[in-house]
């Protein structure tokens, strides 16, 4: 199994959905798309091995990959949607054991475009904070990926602005350090917020829409060092999905686009996941 399949606990979620060991998930027969992008779902320098299947979220992703000369795409939908099927109540209730009162959604969960292990973001955080204050009515919870969370100058900027600052953990690397609860925590947080916003249209925004939040994309999209321009960069994202960018967007349109991009119509049954994605080599 490629170590990317472990990112955010994706393979753990799929194993659980398929009724397999989700603590030590069996091997996936290929490469699972681990984030949304404007290309074929993988980073431009991703390595692939012959015979491996590319499990992607939506047909559009597969089509872009086909045009790149790549084959063996299978559309399976986003693991996030499988998690939502597995956890229909998570985060919705005050306490599933003692207090099953539905939580009242409030405030905005704000996602700063995050860097990764190989690149840090650069931008004017002060200006972004001002714009968030001007825009958001309720309380703002600021979600930082650990790459930014661990940089005090960034974390403190948002703490000093009076925002609650959280991080869902690490996605892991080379099978180590993966917080398998990453997406569980994110789902819980999203289901408790009314609105999800960010400075770039990215995976978390689509997850927010899928979790029933209003979404908004605004502010300085910031730069990431070493960003690969070959797929057209964020400018292409803005041209392709203008309906999802802005402070006040049509939420019905956002829901439709999100369903398409996350492949809501393409989710497999547990038996199909077992058969299609896991090869049973270490079940």
């Amino acid at each position: 199994m490629h170590h990317h399949n472990h990112y955010y606990g994706h393979s753990h979620i799929l194993a659980r959905y398929a009724g397999l060991d989700d603590r030590h998930p069996p091997r996936l027969r290929g490469y699972l798309q681990h984030g949304w992008n404007v290309a074929d779902g993988y980073n431009p320098t991703h390595e692939f091995f012959d015979g491996a299947v590319r499990y992607v979220w939506s047909p559009r992703i597969a089509e872009r990959g086909y045009a790149l000369g790549r084959r063996n795409y299978t559309v399976v939908g986003a693991p996030w949607l499988y998690l939502q099927r597995l956890e229909p109540e998570l985060g919705f209730l005050e306490d599933p054991e003692t207090n099953r009162k539905p939580v009242e959604r409030e405030g905005t969960l704000w996602f700063l475009f995050h860097g990764w292990e190989g690149g840090k973001i650069e931008g004017d955080h002060k200006r972004l904070i001002d714009e968030i204050r001007e825009t958001e009515d309720g309380p703002v919870t600021f979600s930082l990926y650990y790459t930014e969370y661990d940089r005090p100058e960034i974390r403190n900027a948002y703490l000093d602005a009076g925002f609650e600052v959280i991080s869902f953990g690490r996605r892991g690397f080379s099978y180590l350090g993966t917080d398998t609860e990453f997406l569980y925590k994110q789902l819980t947080a999203m289901r408790r917020h009314k609105r999800v916003a960010g400075n770039r249209l990215a995976t978390a925004i689509l997850y927010g829409a899928a979790a029933g939040c209003e979404i908004a994309v605004y502010g300085d999209p910031m730069m990431m060092e070493g960003e690969d321009p070959r797929f057209g960069g964020y400018a292409r994202v803005q041209r392709l999905w203008p309906d999802l960018i802005g402070k006040d967007i049509d939420q019905r349109v956002a829901q439709q686009i999100t369903r398409e991009e996350l492949g809501a119509r393409y989710l497999l049954t547990p038996a199909e996941v077992r058969r299609t994605m896991f090869d049973g080599s270490n079940e």
Partner: peptide, 8 residues
């Protein structure tokens, strides 16, 4: 184009 990468 049948494989993940062009033929070796």
């Amino acid at each position: 184009r049948d494989t993940a990468q062009p033929s070796e």
